[in-house]
Simulated scan of single mutants.
Amino acid sequence: MKSVFIISTLLFLTSSVKLFSQVQPPQTQESQTPTTKVEFEESEYDFGRIESGEKVVHIFKFTNTGDVPMVITSARGSCGCTVPFYPKVPILSGESSEIEVEFDSRGKMGLQHKKVYLIANTVPSMIELIIKGEVMRVEDSPSIETKDGAKALKRENDEKLTNKDPSCFIIYPNPSSDLVQIELKEHIGENAMIYIHNETGIQVLEQKVERISRESTQVDVSEFTPGMYMITIVIDNIKLKTQCFMVTR
């Protein structure tokens, strides 16, 4: 009788442990990426009336109010007619930048309500921007103007992507997991030193570049610990602007 009681008790305990393990929520792994705070001047914009077929643009301005650089990893619109353009380089603490959103009204009619989703190292990690407007046919209102008082706005990508400031350089991709490319087209033929420091200020890389060419310079970061890094380039004892980049896995 005693042995039956012991066996019954063991079976009960085994069942209880199994049931307890089944109802426990899955453990989530916390992100090791430092987070920051961001403040937008506005998160919603109304274009007003838009002439059918026009492309209109609005710029959302924001400031990194946190303590670490802000990195936007992706941006997408709620449909193909809404295209966001965002900075590919980190925005340092206290600095401001812009998100340009272009809306193509071709094939649209009536009231429009579109969203843009940004993913960044912020809290929360997804930021939502909204654009609105009413698309009308030309014959219905031939003198339509947008709220900005502008007709179709053409994005000038070439001018924005051209590195005209000799104290600047271009680094991509950002974030990166293996190689980063550095463009120094304003200094072709010159020699340079590349220095990379981690978040605590410790130098983790020093690389010499002889006779800069039109081709981008590669830096191997595959052995770097995931996190934020600062890259500084010195050319002829002149220090260029320091930029930040993120290493992920």
Rank of each mutant, 00 (worst) to 15 (best):
K18D: 15
K239P: 10
I7S: 06
N163R: 04
L19Y: 14
I7R: 05
C168M: 10
L19P: 14
G53H: 11
Q207M: 05
T65M: 13
L10G: 01
S43K: 10
S52I: 09
F169C: 00
Q207V: 08
Q22R: 09
V38Y: 01
D46T: 05
Q181K: 04
L11K: 02
T242H: 05
L179S: 09
S3F: 12
S74V: 06
L240H: 09
S143Y: 06
S105C: 01
I182E: 13
M228G: 07
Q27P: 08
G94D: 00
M193P: 13
Q181E: 14
Q22L: 08
Q181W: 03
R155Y: 15
S213Q: 01
D165R: 13
Y117F: 15
P90G: 02
I196W: 10
L179V: 11
V135L: 07
V23H: 09
N121L: 01
V221I: 03
G133I: 07
I59C: 03
I182A: 14
Q203M: 10
H187M: 14
E30I: 08
M1A: 15
R155N: 15
S3D: 14
H58E: 05
R155G: 13
M136H: 13
L19V: 06
N191W: 02
T14M: 15
K88A: 08
L118M: 07
S78Y: 02
S43T: 10
P173S: 08
F47I: 00
S8G: 13
A75E: 05
E156F: 13
P142T: 00
H187R: 10
S176G: 13
D220Q: 03
P34I: 01
D46Y: 02
V38W: 04
E186A: 12
D104Y: 02
S222T: 00
N191R: 11
P25W: 06
L19G: 11
E128A: 12
L118T: 01
K208R: 13
P90W: 01
M193E: 08
P34S: 00
F224C: 00
E199P: 15
H58N: 03
E102F: 02
S52L: 13
Y86A: 03
E54H: 06
P69F: 05
S21A: 09
S96F: 08
G48Q: 01
G227K: 00
G48M: 00
T122F: 12
S15G: 13
S3P: 03
T65E: 14
D236W: 03
Y195M: 15
D148M: 01
R76Y: 15
S213V: 01
K239R: 11
K185M: 11
E186T: 10
G53I: 01
Y229F: 03
D220V: 00
Y117A: 13
F20M: 12
E223Y: 05
S167P: 12
D46E: 12
I202K: 14
V234D: 09
I99P: 02
Q243W: 10
S97A: 03
R211H: 06
A192L: 02
K61V: 07
K239W: 04
L19K: 07
V38N: 09
T122N: 12
